[in-house]
Every structure is written in structure tokens, then in C-alpha cells.
């Protein structure tokens, strides 16, 4: 049976409770294509059921729900299955399993989490802000995983009191620090008037990028390995 849910934590927990006894359960969310012919249940999130599942999982593994949050943020195609199999194993064993790396389900879940966390770390470096006429900073990006609110705290400690917006243009949402408060909000397109010398600094950055390179030692493959091409779109130097 395929269990289709909306990708939220509450719906996942509801679906988990329903699907757990089903040996052949597959969890699916979001925009993934469902193949015709497979029997599908559409799971509507149920706060009561979700709370029960949450309480039970918490008993078995205190830190598991933090991992669930990260797993559901993954942009990986099979993240729902990965999360489901991982929590199914926790439920089956009745204890934390995260260190049993020889188990396929555990390894897959840990890798999936590692990729989300690694992307957070990467964007601490690769995010690029531009300065608006009002002095607020704006950074568009298109991450693989749903992380805009996860990278915000780093910039808040670093840049405060400057207000800034981190815009996930793919998911059409933004994490915002308005100078006092932090929140996330849907955001389709940002209207932006740049400060008068924004362009000047971008130009200088491009000059710098070019000058600091040592052309006789070109290693493009290595560069692309560290800084994947799909991230370049929002980096002025590329």
C-alpha cells in the first residue's frame, strides 16, 4: 500500500501510525508521481494520532524527532521512505538505533541527514547578500533541501542589527530577520532597489576572484566538486 501525505511532520506521524503494521508500506509526499495501479491511501494529518506517535517515539529515542525534522527537509526523492524505514526500525527495536550503521535503514537516514546539515554548512559560505537602498540585505538562493530558516541564525548573530532576507526562490519562501524578529513567510518574488554602490562592490569582488586565482594550476574538476555548478547562479563571481 502507498501512503500519500502532505510532507508535514504531523501528517508523517499520522501516516507512520497507519503504515507501521503494513509490511509493504511505502510513504510518499509532495509532487512525486504516483504510478497507476498501486493502491494508495491519502493520509490526512490527524493531530491526535500524531501526538500519540510522537510521544511513543520520544520514549524510544529522545533525539529522534530532531532527526525527523531534518529528514523531512531533505530534497532527496526517497526521503519519505528513508524516514519511514528509520523510524520503523526504532519502533521495532524499541531503542535508539542511530549508531547501528551496518543496518541499511540507519545508514541511509544518517547519510540523508548529513547531506542536509552539510548543505547548511555550505551555504554559511556560499550565500551572497546584496545591499538594498534601505541598507537591508537580500540573499536569493536555490538549495537542494528546505533550509532557509536553518541558516538564518548564523547570519543573525553575525550581522545583527542589520535586517536581512534569505529567499529560497525554488520553494518560494523566505527566512526573515526584520531587525527585531525572526520569521518565515511565503515569498514569490522580491522587489528590490539596490544601494548606490552595490554594483561597485560586486565588480570589485569579481576582480578579486580573478586576481587571486593561479591560472597555471587550473583544476576545474576539483573546483566543481567543492562548489557545485548548480549553486553558481546566485554568486556574482561566477
Amino acid at each position: 500500500m502507498i501512503y500519500f501525505y502532505d510532507g508535514t511532520k504531523e501528517a508523517f506521524l499520522t501516516a507512520f501510525l497507519l503504515a507501521y503494521p503494513d509490511e509493504e508500506a511505502v510513504l510518499v509526499s509532495g509532487t512525486r508521481q504516483l504510478s497507476v495501479g498501486q493502491s494508495t491511501v491519502f493520509v490526512r494529518s490527524d493531530p491526535d494520532r500524531a501526538r500519540r506517535a510522537e510521544a511513543r517515539l520520544k520514549e524510544l529515542d529522545r533525539d529522534g524527532l530532531k532527526e525527523l525534522d531534518l529528514l523531512l527537509r531533505s530534497g532527496q526523492e526517497d526521503r519519505d521512505t528513508v524516514a519511514f524505514e528509520y523510524f520503523r526500525l526504532i519502533a521495532a527495536r524499541g531503542c535508539p538505533v542511530r549508531k547501528m550503521l551496518a543496518e541499511d535503514a540507519v545508514f541511509a537516514a544518517m547519510e540523508c541527514i548529513r547531506r542536509v546539515e552539510f548543505e547548511v554548512h555550505r551555504f554559511h559560505g556560499f550565500l551572497r547578500f546584496m545591499e538594498s537602498a534601505s541598507g537591508a540585505l537580500y540573499a536569493p538562493f536555490a538549495p537542494d533541501n528546505d533550509i532557509c530558516d536553518l541558516i538564518l541564525p548564523h547570519f543573525r548573530t553575525r550581522l545583527a542589527p542589520l535586517p536581512f532576507v534569505i529567499h529560497d526562490v525554488g520553494r518560494k519562501k523566505a527566512a526573515v530577520f526584520d531587525g527585531d524578529h525572526v520569521f518565515t513567510a511565503p515569498l514569490e518574488k522580491a522587489e528590490l532597489a539596490l544601494s548606490s554602490d552595490e554594483e561597485g562592490w560586486q565588480e570589485l569582488w569579481k576582480h578579486y576572484y580573478k586576481s587571486v586565482n593561479i591560472p597555471s594550476r587550473e583544476r576545474l574538476k576539483q573546483m566543481r566538486g567543492y562548489m557545485p555548478v548548480r549553486y553558481w547562479k546566485f554568486m556574482p563571481e561566477k
Partner: peptide, 19 residues
Amino acid sequence: IGNGYIAGCCHSFTPDGRC
């Protein structure tokens, strides 16, 4: 403005593969 990042942080990579 600013703070340290104990593990260090790469902001870009040049065509010579350096951070």
C-alpha cells in the same frame, strides 16, 4: 559586525581548486 566560525568556512572556490 561579525564573529568567528570555529571550524572555518569556505566562501568560494577559484578555478585552481583553492578555497
